[in-house]
Design a protein around this nucleic acid. Structure first.
Lengths: 229, 229
DNA sequence: CACTGCTAACTGGTCTGACCAAAAGTATAG
DNA sequence: CTATACTTTTGGTCAGACCAGTTAGCAGTG
């Protein structure tokens, strides 16, 4: 029954990580604070930390802070650069975005904290006010930040990890989609703003299924504008 | 350059185990003797030992001796160590599988070549004929091979890449789901076989939406059996 | 002689407090 | 404002102690 203490602690820490309360890249408490917080000795903390590290959940650095690691990072060593302007690849990127952001929105609607909902709301209001007069690049970044915030609100370690990797590695392709679309129509398609609004509202109302559909529809809408060159 | 001490020790101990000088069941030195032998403190020894244990190389028992474990045993009956044993994480893995395999099935139904459909059909027939009398491990592998073939038939570079990474990296967790389910019900849930059949048929008929739904439902069905411990 | 039961000598698990080394933060000089 | 030096914080290691199970040996008993 009574597991070793370090094992209890290990489970506690894992749940902290799985729960998505710590995003990949975020710093954990120092070992000394953990010891105090969990009322165990630092030796015990270390044994749990060493295990977490060996299982790949955290990156620990002598002298520096210990951070939650991205579970998928080690597997994406070679970023496929140069694919950013390939139409076929851009279509695939959008298809994966639809899948990923649909799930992110779904779980965000279910599990976002109230603070995260407020932060998301602020970000959405900011995004509305901008929009004109900005560069294509800044628009792309705004768009990704909005979607990344949704992913981070999902409290889903795997989806967060995948989103981080995906948005950073394939930013070129995502940006390529936007500039290709702008070149074709001269401006943002009309649906984008209202679609962002629907995503925003459904998450705020915690309507998970509607949020997923809205996010998917949003991406596929953009994707449709790419086809038929 | 210079690794942490406990890491050097870890490597030394692993070589000892790999070298076959210690047979499964043989006892290791006590931690105090290791400390003296390697001229390090016992804390350092413990950090290495804890890692070895979490990686399944040794069995350590409070009060008793620490023994070299049979490296293959965990793959046959014991629940997998480390990544795979946490319920919360297993649920997340299943959620991502549902997302991933849904999309894979969708695009496979759309874009699989005739040769791929035939190969998939052969694999499905083989999977049906087996099923009894096989080990949990071989069942898990069969299952993954079937789903990986679907992913490969999707002609979708990103989905194939991610599936490969996901299945290899998180195999332990996926296997953990299976053995947990078997332990709980004594056998495969009834729905699995018929669900595989539906996935197979919908892809064969190139009904993309139905294939996606079938694949998602299949995983979520398995996932539901995990909840409520 | 075999068996039982106790004890003493292991083993691993945890705690404390100290010190070192690397990184991060902060104040200071240019 | 930048670059440097200093201080603080963080992880890595060490020493020695105590607790908690396990094992082994030894005495006593039948």
């Amino acid at each position: 029954m009574s597991q070793p203490l370090s094992n209890d602690l290990l489970q506690d820490l894992k749940e902290l990580l799985y729960g998505g309360d710590l995003l990949p890249g975020d710093a954990l408490m120092s070992q000394r604070k953990m010891a105090e917080h969990y009322q165990v000795s630092r030796s015990t903390v270390r044994e749990a930390v060493v295990q977490l590290e060996s299982e790949g959940f955290i990156d620990v650095q002598h002298g520096g802070k210990t951070r939650c690691s991205n579970l998928l990072e080690p597997y994406f060593d070679l970023p496929p650069e140069g694919l950013g302007d390939n139409l076929e690849f851009q279509l695939q990127v959008m298809e994966v975005r639809a899948m990923l952001e649909g799930e992110a929105a779904y779980y965000a609607a279910l599990r976002a904290s109230d603070e995260q909902l407020q932060a998301l709301d602020r970000e959405y209001q900011l995004m509305r006010q901008r929009g004109q007069g900005d560069t294509t690049l800044s628009k792309a970044k705004d768009d990704l930040r909005f979607h990344m915030m949704i992913a981070e609100s999902s409290h889903h370690l795997l989806i967060i990890s995948f989103s981080q990797i995906f948005y950073s590695r394939f930013f070129n392709a995502i940006y390529g989609v936007l500039s290709r679309t702008l070149k074709k129509y001269g401006r943002y398609p009309d649906g984008i703003r209202s679609q962002h609004s629907v995503i925003h509202q459904t998450i705020m109302h915690r309507d998970a299924d509607a949020a997923r559909n809205a996010a998917i529809e949003h991406i596929l809408y953009t994707r449709r504008h790419l086809e038929g060159d």
